[in-house]
Amino acid sequence: MSIAVNNISKSYKKLKAVDSITFKVNDGELFGLIGPDGAGKTTIFRILTTLLVANEGSAEVAGYDVVKQLKEIRNSVGYMPGKFSLYQDLTVEENLHFFATIFGTTIEENYDLIKDIYIQIEPFKDRRAGALSGGMKQKLALCCALIHAPKVLFLDEPTTGVDPVSRKEFWIMLKRLQQKGITILVSTPYMDEASLCDRIALIQKGKILKIDTPQNIINNYEKVIYDVQAKNTHGLIHDLKNYPNQYSVYAFGEFVHYIDKNATFNPNDLQTYLKNKNHTDIIIKPATITIEDVFMDL
């Protein structure tokens, strides 16, 4: 077991940031904490990386207790905070060299591990970290977190504020690291990234709502969702919300997702209702369920 969290709670004054959370991450697993801003993801990261002490509960990382065995943990985990936190006035190479040295290692020793990533930023190795683009900063931060070959890697919202192409690349890199046997705990507010994890925990207001593989979470969702489209989207949402049997209505890309209270729901009834409301070009069809839909329903 790489990470074992047992009934961890943490409060900031009156606000309960994390409320008796329990989960386990297996060796070599890519585990995702999925939840909106303020759900408590960062607090969990800070507790597991020994930066914060929990009020209640216990946790182990790589077999070490987060309170009693700080030193062992600090030697065996890599942490990439949500905010870019390398020295902006040092160059790419100097940053990497610095972190290698304070971990008592050298760049050469673990070069294999970071090679794929470092090659992409190597042309800019003499540039100051502050002058890098967002995606490149990300890669540098990942290199610095990996330079001591950690057993467990913590990535707190690594793709927030990064362009879609870099995001995609980043997840490919994570998959590669996973193949090298590194356990990865990653958090993200993006639901589309959730399906790339082995298992995910859906978090809201400091509580875990569900833990499972993304596929199981989708499969276990029993309600039927319909994509609804019409010319006047704004009016459509308004009218759908006034439909007597509606369970939930929300915009989803070019469609509006509609869920009915009754299992015996007939789309034709809705079609008629919308026609009476003067909607044109109406399309109603069953939708493919995504993690986001499940999350919206929790």
Binding site: L51, R74, V77, P81, S85, L86, Y87, Q88, F99, G104
Partner: peptide, 13 residues
């Protein structure tokens, strides 16, 4: 402020 301290604090330094 820059957040680098947090990064330093998770190292065995």
């Amino acid at each position: 402020e820059l957040g680098t301290l947090e990064q330093i604090n998770v190292t065995p330094i």
